Simulated assay, not measured.
Amino acid sequence: MDELLSRARSGATVNALAGEGNPKYHGKGIISRVKLLAACNADSPEARELKALLKRNADATISPGRPQYRWSDESIALLTENYAKGMAANKIVPLIKARFGQDFTAAAITTKASRLGLLRDVPVKTPRRRVLAPLTAALRFPLNSLLDRINRAVPRHLARDHRDDVIGEIALAIYEGRLNEIEIERRVGEFVNASYRRDHDRFGPLSLDVPLHESGPATLIDTITKGLWQ
């Protein structure tokens, strides 16, 4: 057990102790994997320490043959101290290497600092929202109401009757429980496409609500003078 603990404290993994996995471990194992697992599961302080060390060493391995940097309380304190002074990651790398003998990258230092919450908040510039010119065809609903949210989600480039149909279909789907309110923006395209295929395809059947002229209220239904069965 002493030899196992000694090697585990030095960074040895299960494969290294059992002589398995990476070819560089073959023939160098000191215990079988089965016996090693049994030693880890024993009810003793040494077994618990061995199990914790092997887990730490396994977590510290990025890929076979390349050990990840093992952070200690001292190295984390050094990292925190220098970040508090505003020192850049590439300046901290040689300090850690000189003190702890670990060769690490500035990117990995930055990642660790980010996980520790050491990075200073960088102001994010939010692009100004483009304000669309008022459209006479756009419906107006009470601010922040359900219909107002649907109206804002439906594309403005659609024809007036097409937009009206889509808004009505989405509202109906919500009231009937076929659509959750939180999915309006994500699924609005489905309703636009369905409405287009059903009523607004110029090569297919036309909606009776299609306006005849942009300057007047007359629609296609006003041209019907004879019923289908007459």
Rank of each mutant, 00 (worst) to 15 (best):
E46W: 03
A47R: 01
R48C: 11
L53P: 00
L53V: 04
K55V: 06
K55E: 10
D59C: 08
A60W: 02
T61I: 12
S63I: 11
P64Y: 10
R66D: 13
S75T: 11
I76G: 00
L78K: 03
L78A: 11
L79C: 05
L79Q: 00
T80D: 09
E81P: 02
E81M: 11
N82E: 13
Y83E: 01
K85L: 15
A89T: 04
A89V: 03
N90Q: 12
K91L: 11
V93P: 00
R99L: 11
F100K: 01
F100V: 02
Q102M: 07
D103M: 10
A107Y: 08
A108G: 11
I109D: 00
T110M: 08
T111E: 06
K112N: 03
A113F: 07
A113V: 04
S114K: 15
L116D: 06
L116F: 05
L118S: 07
R120M: 09
D121S: 13
P123E: 10
P123C: 06
K125V: 14
T126I: 15
T126P: 01
P127A: 14
R130N: 10
P134N: 11
P134F: 09
P134H: 08
L135Y: 06
L135T: 08
A138Y: 04
N144M: 09
S145Q: 12
I150N: 00
A153W: 03
R156F: 03
H157I: 08
L158V: 09
